[in-house]
């Protein structure tokens, strides 16, 4: 995961922010078929990954709501293992860098 993404604690330390090294494009429809969707609205979706909430943004940033780094990493890995493999997180060369 670390080659692909950077994970850091959120400003107020109740979540971890995972940012892709490259600009991504996320397929929300496919993610929603595999993971339990808590809510999906314009510009974001919240998934329940093994009891942890993961907010996924269209360009690949993910916010994991937990203070436990191990749990956060597990949740992120669960998403990326399948999403990257299946092409649901694709590098998006049409967009500039940054979130």
């Amino acid at each position: 995961m670390s080659d692909f993404f950077v994970m850091k604690p959120c400003q107020k330390a109740t979540a971890f922010e995972v940012v892709p090294q490259k600009q991504m494009s996320v397929d929300f429809d496919s993610l929603g078929k595999v993971f339990e969707t808590v809510i999906r609205i314009e510009g974001m979706m919240i998934l329940n990954i093994q009891g942890v909430q993961a907010t996924v943004y269209p360009r690949g940033k993910i916010l994991i709501r937990t203070t436990d780094r191990d749990k956060a990493e597990q949740a992120v890995n669960s998403i990326y293992e399948i999403a990257v493999k299946e092409g649901w997180f694709k590098e998006d060369s049409t967009r500039g860098s940054g979130q």
């Binding site: 107020k12 330390a13 510009g43 919240i46 907010t55 916010l63």
Partner: peptide
């Protein structure tokens, strides 16, 4: 100042 999750449902 303590820990709290921001309102993630709010618009940009």
């Amino acid at each position: 100042k303590g820990p709290e999750m921001c309102d993630i449902l709010g618009p940009k």
